[in-house]
């Protein structure tokens, strides 16, 4: 399988098929990263397209100096930050959080309760994440959800690996405080 860098170099030489393959590999990750960053399901695909459009436009200047994914998430972070700052108040009410996700498939749970629970927990997690300083939030989102290593996150945030570890640990400690009420039931949330 061709590496991301090889695909990007092919894109640079005018092969649009290579760029389509890059999108297939990373699109879902970028959409979800933006979704968790902005908590806007309706706009996340549009913003993800914007991210890929920026990459496609700058393909001519591409130099394979760093991993493609770090470049990708750096742009995704910038696009998300710009969006959040432009929108000002980006928090959603719980009613606005989409509940059309897949069913859990657990027959022991009442479906209505499950939907209410998921709405609540997603809103609570978003608010807790939103309360973190920007760098702690980005570091946790990239490590936890996008599976980036500390080194890759360090490239995205343009800092040292030690700084990334500190962001993650401090953020995690703050999240413990903010999510305490949801941890007190022994961790069994039934989903």
């Amino acid at each position: 399988m061709e590496s991301d860098i090889e695909l990007m170099l092919r894109t640079k030489s005018g092969d649009d098929g290579a760029f389509s393959e890059l999108m297939r590999r990373h699109y879902k990750g970028v959409v979800n990263y933006i979704y968790r960053f902005t908590n806007r399901r309706d706009n996340s695909e549009d913003l993800a397209q914007e991210v890929f459009l920026r990459i496609y436009r700058s393909a001519g200047q591409y130099k394979p100096e760093a991993k493609f994914s770090t470049w990708l998430y750096k742009i995704a972070t910038n696009v998300s930050l710009t969006y959040v700052k432009k929108k000002g108040n980006n928090s959603l009410s719980l009613d606005e959080i989409d509940d059309s996700g897949d069913a859990t498939g657990n027959p022991a749970l009442d479906i209505a309760d499950d939907i209410i629970y998921r709405k609540e927990i997603m809103g609570v997690i978003f608010e807790a994440m939103e309360s973190l300083p920007e760098r702690e939030k980005v570091a946790i989102l990239l490590c936890k959800y996008e599976g980036l290593s500390y080194e890759e996150v360090a490239h995205v945030l343009e800092c040292t690996v030690g700084a990334v570890k500190a962001y993650v640990h401090r953020g995690r400690m703050k999240l413990i405080e903010r999510l305490k009420p949801y941890l007190s039931e022994g961790g069994d949330y039934g989903v």
Partner: peptide
């Protein structure tokens, strides 16, 4: 609690992008 917070974050569900994102792009 630290382990539990990490597990709880995992409950923030993923969303599935539409199937035609490549052609839309």
């Amino acid at each position: 609690n630290s382990n539990e917070v990490w597990r709880l974050l995992g409950e923030w569900e993923e969303i599935e992008p539409g199937n035609d994102y490549v052609s839309e792009f």
